[in-house]
Each structure stands twice: as structure tokens, then as C-alpha cells.
């Protein structure tokens, strides 16, 4: 994906704030899917977006707010050129080593049967992913996906 495509003018946007209850994973997917429907995406494109978003939200619930409930801030922007930008932000514990966390099969939660594939899925199912994190302050994941449509 070209860098210029990631900086296009914002045409439409939504913002959602959800408490980190696991039931909200599906609610977040539903809301973001409904927003993306305006681009008439293919089933595969919509599936990719839902999956990547679900991973980001699940990370907030399972890792960022591991022993507590906190707010998850989701913003979705439709950019010029049919690009969707999704930001998922938390104010949780932060990621100690982002480089490690992005490696396939890496997980800090073996007991919970996590596959360690969350960031790999996000990266593979979108065109670009950025992760910024600060220990004790939180994490923001930004995903970009160009929609070719049907």
C-alpha cells in the first residue's frame, strides 16, 4: 500500500468506546462491518477486516486489561481512495516488547490457550499495521485496508 493512500482525506468516520467485556468483541465486529458496508466490500475483504479488528479488541481484553475492565477506543475512518483506517486504543498495561509480540506464535498467555497469532493475523489480513505502546500507559494499533469492492 502506498504511503499517500494512508494519508488520504477523511470522508466518513465512526468512534466507539466499549468496556473490555468479551461479549463486546462481536459487537465491535458488527459495528465496524456495518460502517465498511458503504464501500460494498467483497465477503473476503469484510472477513479480513472483521478478523483483524477482532484480534485487536481481544488483545485489549486478554492482555491490556488482563485483571480489570477498562475502555477500548475504536475509531474507523474511510479515507479517499477506498481505504479504511481502524484504530484500536486502550489505556492498559502496555506491551513490554512490541517486536516480540508481533512475532508469530508468541504469547504470554499459554494457560489461556492463546495461539500467539493475533498480530500475525492483523498484519496478514490488512495492508498495513502500526503498533505503538507505552508500558503502563496503553497501546494503539492502527490498521489500513484498501477495499477494491465487488
Amino acid at each position: 500500500m502506498k504511503r499517500t493512500e494512508m494519508c488520504g482525506r477523511v470522508i466518513n468516520s465512526i468512534k466507539l468506546t466499549l468496556p473490555s467485556y468479551s461479549v463486546n468483541e462481536g459487537i465491535a465486529r458488527g459495528a465496524v462491518s456495518a460502517f465498511c458496508a458503504q464501500l460494498d466490500p467483497t465477503a473476503a475483504e469484510l472477513g479480513d477486516i472483521k478478523c483483524a479488528l477482532s484480534e485487536a479488541v481481544t488483545n485489549c481484553i486478554v492482555h491490556a486489561y488482563r485483571d480489570t475492565i477498562g475502555d477500548i477506543y475504536i475509531s474507523v475512518d474511510l479515507l479517499e481512495g477506498s481505504v479504511v483506517r481502524i484504530k484500536v486504543k486502550d489505556r492498559g498495561c502496555g506491551i513490554e516488547d512490541v517486536k516480540c509480540a508481533r512475532m508469530p506464535l508468541y504469547t504470554t498467555d499459554r494457560a489461556g490457550e492463546r495461539s500467539g497469532m493475533g498480530f500475525t493475523v492483523m498484519e496478514s489480513f490488512t495492508d498495513s499495521m502500526r503498533v505503538s505502546s507505552s508500558k503502563g500507559k496503553g497501546t494503539t494499533v492502527t490498521l489500513y485496508k484498501k477495499i477494491e469492492g465487488r
Binding site: 465486529r29 472477513g47 472483521k50 478478523c51 477482532s54 484480534e55 481481544t58 489461556g112 490457550e113 492463546r114 495461539s115 500467539g116 497469532m117 493475533g118 500475525t120 493475523v121
Partner: peptide
């Protein structure tokens, strides 16, 4: 209709 990496964990387990 939908599965994310939690499903992978479920299957591997």
C-alpha cells in the same frame, strides 16, 4: 461464519 485466532487456540488445545 467467523473465526479468529481464538479458534486456532481452541483447535490446537
Amino acid at each position: 461464519s467467523f473465526m479468529d485466532s481464538s479458534g486456532l487456540g481452541l483447535i490446537m488445545g
